[in-house]
Write a protein that binds this DNA or RNA. Structure first.
Lengths: 125, 125
DNA sequence: TGCATAGTTAACCTTTTGGTTAACTATTTC
DNA sequence: GAAATAGTTAACCAAAAGGTTAACTATGCA
């Protein structure tokens, strides 16, 4: 039986529950951007965006690199991975039965070390 | 580029952002339970649980079956699937490059129809 | 030096959240 | 019919969320 909700999951899921914050993550994708650039498409004051960024940062979803007067934000996928895995883990129970669980665990352990890519097309450039 | 945040995702992620609500989902797993039973392990009044259940229900994460004076709640995995897919979709961009995307899409389309179980050991009992 | 740019912090406001207790509705059981 | 059981609704409360504007810090640039 799954128990003991990890404290970080609260922050991660909470951060994701706001459409502006999800939009910021979508907007960033893999690249880096400054606060003003991030704020631009959102119909909202700069301090409001600043708050959202802090929420995302404290949830570990963004990392900040300060260079001069500019703050560059970048997505950190780790907490999202955890969030996804919580969902996966639950799904195993919903989909029911324990052979499905075994199947799932096999797939997880096969997937989890990214050092063994299925296809060697290319790795993270 | 991913855009247009689905409105349901707000509710789903928000529902998941509370540890009590996640705990309820974990506790339920695949089975059905009444409100009092659900409330029992949580150090909280019944109305408080009732509210949490309503949040989960309105997010589509629980379905309610009323039988006499008892309300039976059961997990509905669909919105979680959407939430997971949002994360997946984002991850594709963080992990970067587009061959990863292709790989991902292949795996998704291969996984999505649950009507083709890999092992016929047993089905949902 | 002085001004523009990038961003945060402070103070404030309204709405929502998450909890409480008390009262209510509906069903079952004696 | 009365009492127990299952659960919701109502009214309330404190704290947090999400936004605002104004003031501030710090850097870049003429």
């Amino acid at each position: 039986m799954p128990r003991a909700p990890k404290p970080d999951l609260n922050d991660a899921f909470f951060a994701l529950s706001d459409p502006t914050r999800r939009s910021i993550l979508e907007q960033l994708g893999a690249r880096e951007a400054g606060v003003t650039e991030i704020a631009e498409p959102h119909d909202m004051s700069l301090p409001a965006i600043s708050k959202h960024l802090r929420v995302l940062e404290q949830a570990g979803l963004l990392t900040r690199r300060v260079e001069g007067r500019q703050h560059f934000l970048r997505v950190n996928p780790d907490p999202l991975q955890q969030a996804k895995q919580w969902i996966e883990r639950q799904r195993v129970f919903w989909e029911g039965s324990f052979d499905k669980l075994a199947e799932h665990l096999e797939r997880m352990t096969a997937e989890s070390p990214p050092s063994t890519p299925k296809s060697s097309k290319s790795r993270k450039p």
